[in-house]
Design a protein around this nucleic acid. Structure first.
Length: 871
RNA sequence: GCCUGGGUGGCGGAAUAGGUAGACGCAAGGGACUUAAAAUCCCUCGGAGCAUAGCUCUGUACGAGUUCAAUUCUCGUCCCAGGUACCA
């Protein structure tokens, strides 16, 4: 300010210092710690908690940024917001990492949690860290064990024998993803199917209710509820009993097509069907059947694997009788018949089911047509595929000539009258097998005693603590069965000293099925949760997470709430009122012909494309796909945080695409956001320089200059647009665009004169730009707010409101079309009526040129929008 | 195969109770400032054509249709993504 050589240093926003400053401010003032406050309306906002893998990735950053904006927005709207964070801390990666790095799963997990907590704090998310939970802590899982015991008592959980992938060499169970081409991932030995006794939750008891309420979740994306409906897979059909020739007993089948019953020519049983052995015993087929059943039992049963196997079967040597026409039907056992669906037996109707048709052709079995399509005659000898459409019945005794739709009910009625069947419902959904022969999980709280059988651990002995000083086995198996101090115990009923604990642990989906309830009272030591806290906070108002959890996690959580409801612990059934499934973060892959996939930093830009940092080869730029470590197309959030800080990273995640859509990562785009942030930063300085201390003007339009009115309107329109975009659809990208427009308008506005009204309006707009951006770029907004001279923190400010009377314009723009093509436009008073508008349009010079000598056939006037002249 | 979504500039994306297609941003090109660079600011930017301050035609995957008017509604086709699959 003193001499002539005054250099104006353009001050820029520097995230490093500012972000730490405000994070410390929020933390030291306890801004985000929440408690039940009945004077305020609550809002429970939840993002899916992460698995503590060690580092946050861009998917987390995006998910949690979306959530944080909503949380901060709702807070400004006056809600009492619950916004917790925690760790889905049990699971196999910890075991693998422990073996690979010679650490312990617990140490590895706790270290990772610390590292990720630090990263999340750096992002400035508004979590109530006092409520942090980790599912691997005994204080958490003891209540899961407690719930298991309640369920056991109410017979909501049971034990049965079921198959697992087993590696004989490693003596361990393998998850489906550990089976690679039927071989063990560790030792490359063949994987077998082994039958083990395992625990199941009776989720099927709730199949009907879970299905029914899919239609009562208006806050969920339709595609998610649809996926759940398909997963539950209800089908209505009939159960039919077939007599077995020369034997007592019968074979029960489930069919959705009772109308084709007359056309059933053979029967297929699942290899595990109890009748397979007894039917074939003593026949010349016995050995073949035995061999077949054994072969199938060795095959992997994962859904992926099923596709590989061709449909095949073996005749059991037995025959059954079609109840409608007395036809002798050979009974097969076939690999496509599933013990877990229906009754485990299929009545095969080759003429009208493609799979049965293929099977019949393969084994040269009879094909009988019982439904003829209109205007066509099917001949089994020449048919090339099954006919599955509608038609009239033939070869069906008294039902001949009947429409097949009508015959379904008629035949079922007949079956019921004869005592040979009835209408039933079948679900695709199976009971939830929760036993995992794994170490790093919640121990199942039961004891096996040779005298008393399965005995629940007494409640007073909970938690059954997972021994954390166990060494993992090299082969990946669980050490728990080998730990006598854990596994050997005393039977709580009879006192036998040689009782054994169940050494299986629970599926980690169990922990994530109720963690959101625990957040309501995370330190409660006397119960799973505090009933009053849950009554206040639950259900979750808005849940946000990846669509990959659309089925299992969300369905299990819905199921768990039903269990808690049945047990009388809660009074609601649905955990999540609104659900947002955000898209994936994607990026193109980079491949070097010599070094394979490259990380982005391993490819140097050459102007045209990229070359490999190691070998100078030209890098091939591949398709844009989901970021994944294996494809190396990842951006480490840490690098962004260092270069741009949290706010710019957040801004880009929101600006690049609407949340439900996939986000394509683009480095240039981040740079653009950086530029915008600095543009706002400088605007504040500019505004202060031009407007000084002029107070923000938020009054009516009257008395303002034309320019001031326009800016005033733009300001209020922006508030409305941003509010609506967040409220209606979380479309932050368009909300940010709107603020950008206002910023542009501010730069264009003339603040040099002595138009005091204009300055007041500009001051108002400036404040609102900061307020509207504050949930998105909170540190930046706090800093600006302070620089603007406000004492109070921006997080405690209320969300801006717009004036209805400031939205309206004196004039409106009308476009003129001739035959639907845009030809001209004009401004007119906002209160002009249709006739006036029409008159102006018809008098328009350009319009007259286009109309020329043609006759005007019709003139359409659309209110406040356009005039279309048809010639 | 079946069930969902979705195909809009060089790119990310706007706009659908049918009514100015391409908001906002990125990239690109041109210019200003600067010794220079960075930063910043201004202009141009779907395609084609022409008598080139402008005008005309064309354009929202493709082909039909409804309408004064279609990115938006209907039917058919092709592609892409996600879910699911021996479900009897």
């Amino acid at each position: 300010m003193s001499g002539g050589l005054h250099i104006i240093m353009e001050e820029r926003y520097s995230p490093e210092a500012v972000e730490v400053k405000w994070q410390q401010y929020w933390e030291s003032h306890g801004i985000f710690s929440t408690s039940e406050d009945t004077s305020k309306e609550k809002y429970y906002l939840l993002e899916m908690f992460p698995y503590p893998s060690g580092k946050i990735h861009m998917g987390h950053v995006r998910n949690y940024t979306i959530g944080d904006v909503v949380a901060r927005y709702k807070r400004m709207k006056g809600y009492n917001v619950l916004h917790p964070m925690g760790w889905d801390a049990f699971g196999m990666p910890a075991e693998n990492a422990a073996i690979d790095n010679n650490t312990h799963p617990a140490a590895w997990t706790y270290d990772n949690m610390a590292a990720m907590r630090k990263q999340l704090k750096k992002m400035g998310f508004s979590y109530d860290w006092n409520r942090e939970i980790a599912t691997c802590r005994p204080e958490y899982y003891r209540w899961e064990q407690w719930l298991f015991l309640q369920m056991l008592e109410k017979e909501m959980v049971y034990r049965k024998e079921s198959y697992v992938n087993w590696c004989e060499h490693c003596q361990t169970v393998l998850a489906n993803e550990q089976v690679e081409a039927d071989l063990c991932w560790r030792c490359s030995q063949p994987v077998q199917q082994k039958k083990l006794w395992q625990w199941f939750f009776k989720i099927t008891d709730y199949a009907e209710d879970l299905l029914l309420h899919c239609d009562k979740l208006p806050g969920w994306p339709g595609k998610v509820t649809l996926m759940q409906k398909n997963w539950i897979g209800k089908s209505v059909g009939s159960e039919v009993s077939f007599d077995i020739e020369g034997m007592d007993g019968e074979i029960k089948v489930f069919t959705t097509r009772p109308d084709t019953l007359f056309g059933s020519t053979f029967m297929c049983l699942a290899p595990e069907h109890p009748l397979v052995e007894s039917l074939s015993r003593g026949t010349e087929q016995a050995d073949a059947v035995k061999a077949f059943v054994e072969k199938i039992s060795r095959q992997e049963r994962s859904t992926d694997a099923l596709e590989k196997y061709e449909k095949e079967g073996v005749f059991t040597g037995a025959w059954c009788i079609n109840p409608t026409n007395g036809r002798r039907m050979p009974v097969f056992t076939a690999n496509f018949a599933l013990m877990g669906y229906g009754t485990g037996a299929v009545m095969s109707v080759p003429a009208h089911d493609q799979r049965d048709f293929d099977f019949a052709r393969k084994y040269d079995l009879d094909i009988v047509v019982v439904i003829q399509p209109e205007g066509e005659t099917l001949d089994p000898a020449t048919m090339e595929e099954a006919y599955t459409g509608e038609g009239l019945l033939v070869n069906s005794g008294e039902y001949n000539g009947m429409k097949n739709r009508d015959a379904m009910a008629e035949i079922t009625t007949w079956l019921e009258k004869e005592g040979r069947g009835k209408q039933t419902v079948s679900f695709r959904l199976r009971d939830w097998g929760i036993s995992r022969q794994r170490y790093w999980g919640t121990p199942i709280p039961v004891i096996h005693c040779d005298t008393c059988g399965v005995v629940p651990v007494p409640e007073s002995q909970l938690p059954v603590t997972l021994p954390e000083d166990a060494d993992l086995l090299e082969n990946g198996g669980s050490p728990l069965p080998t730990l006598d101090f854990f596994a050997r115990t005393t039977c709580p009923v009879c006192g036998r000293q040689d009782a054994r604990r169940d050494t299986d642990t629970m599926d980690t989906f169990v922990e994530s099925s109720w963690y959101f309830v625990r957040y309501c009272s995370p330190r409660c030591e006397t119960a799973m949760f505090d009933a009053d806290a849950v009554k206040y906070w639950m259900p979750v108002d808005q849940y946000i997470g990846g669509v990959e959890h659309a089925i299992l996690h969300l369905l299990y959580s819905r199921y768990f709430m039903r269990v808690l409801n049945t047990l009388g612990l809660i009074d609601f059934k649905e955990p999540f009122t609104h659900l947002l499934t955000q898209g994936m973060v994607c990026k193109e892959t980079l491949t070097c012909p010599e070094h394979g996939y490259l990380f982005p930093e391993e490819a140097l830009p050459t102007g045209e494309g990229f070359k490999c940092v190691k070998c100078d080869n030209t890098v091939e730029v591949g398709r844009v796909i989901k970021m994944s470590k294996s494809k190396k197309n990842v951006i480490d959030p840490n690098i962004l945080l260092e270069k741009y800080g949290a706010d710019i990273t957040r801004l880009f995640c929101l600006f690049a695409a609407p949340p439900e859509r996939d986000l394509e990562w683009n480095d240039d785009g981040v740079e653009g956001c950086h530029r915008f942030i600095n543009r706002v930063w400088r605007l504040v300085d500019l505004c202060r320089e031009k407007c000084g201390d002029t107070p923000a003007y938020d009054g009516p339009m009257e008395g303002l200059s034309e320019d001031a009115k326009n800016l005033h309107r733009k300001g209020h329109q922006t508030i409305k647009k941003v509010t609506d975009d967040i409220e209606d659809s979380f479309h932050f990208n368009t909300a940010i665009s709107a603020v950008m427009e206002l910023v542009n308008a501010m730069y264009s506005a003339n603040l040099n004169g002595d138009d005091e009204g204009m300055k007041g309006v500009a001051a108002f707009c400036m404040e609102n730009i900061v307020l509207l951006l504050s949930p998105i770029v909170p540190h930046f907004a706090e800093e600006l707010w302070e620089r603007m001279g406000h004492d109070a923190s921006v997080v405690d400010h209320t969300w801006p409101q717009y004036r209805e009377d400031a939205l309206v314009s004196d004039e409106m723009l009308i476009v003129i079309q001739v035959n639907g093509k845009l030809r001209s436009k004009f401004n007119i008073r906002a209160d002009a009526d249709d006739d006036a508008i029409k008159a102006v349009a018809l008098a328009d010079e350009i319009v007259m040129k286009h109309v020329a000598d043609k006759t005007i056939r019709k003139v359409i006037v659309v209110k406040k929008k356009l005039v279309n002249i048809v010639v």
